[in-house]
Amino acid sequence: MTTVETGDSVGTRAGSVPTAEEPPGAGRAERLSALAQRHGALVTLILVAAAASIGFDTFATGDNLENMAVSSAFLAVVALGMTFVIITGGIDLSVGSLFALGGVLAAWGSQYGTAVALLLPLAVCGLIGLVNGLLIARARLAPFIVTLAAMLLARGVLLSVTDEGSTTYLVDETSFFARLGQDTLLGIGVPVWITVALFVLGAVALRRSRFGQYVYAVGGNEDAAALMGAPVARTKIAVYTLSGLCAGLAGALNAAWLVSGVTILGAGMELEAISAVVIGGTLLTGGFGFISGSLVGVLLLKVIQNVINQIGSLDSAYQQVVSGAFLAVVVIAQTWLGRRRRML
């Protein structure tokens, strides 16, 4: 739908400007609004963090920052996969359940060694993601419904593995797997390093690989992408598989950090991940977005949570209120910016 609107507006604009070149003013305004879309979240993050460091003595302490970084890491990995999915114009609601399932499978598998603890959740969650992708790309079912079904299914598998949630598998604290979650390198937790590495890889894949170009093309105009010879179905299957893998890995790392597979985690995490991606400047309608934005989006959500926790008098339920309000503001701003850019 967006693409249709865009096409129309290009036509109307062309109505007043017959040359291929734009008037310089429009170009500048377009660049400004593109800049706002790209870095709005980052600027907000810096402002909120700066205000918090001034307002609360306990905010900018090493412990608090380290704590925020590690707890952000897991959501960030989930949001990484989600970014690819959303840029293709899709959505993945199954990641919260896959995150929890991945954690439980990793904790259970850790008794057989680190390799099993990592590969089992990746295999299972990757497979569910692959099935999501196949149903969406080949059977042409709506991503919303397919991944909703996967979300319920994964939650069901999780409950059956844990005897309706009554069994909690623990990770041996001395194992190498537990150290993946617990250890620090140069004072920073290993999960944070892993997350940073994954984001670098993800950003390179999205910006610099041919696969990344297909991801943008499919989300930007699926029909055109198909006519240009882009492998539309394969690209979609790949992004949902990737999203499943990311969710499973995030769950496994979380289990290593908590040294147990906590069954109640992950509920609502899919929505948090989607919020983070959208706050980071990726268009929910697809075709536009970037990996670094999602990282900023995650950090912003976590900083807001942290700040509300710092205000002792505020109920923690207000986290959700503030996060929700923030998301609404971002979406409104995005729509407004998008419309402005289209009208230029």
Partner: peptide, 16 residues
């Protein structure tokens, strides 16, 4: 026009 409006001119030209 069957191209992707949000992608750059060069990316459209060379997609694939």
């Amino acid at each position: 026009v069957n191209l992707v409006p949000l992608m750059s001119v060069a990316r459209n030209l060379f997609l694939g």
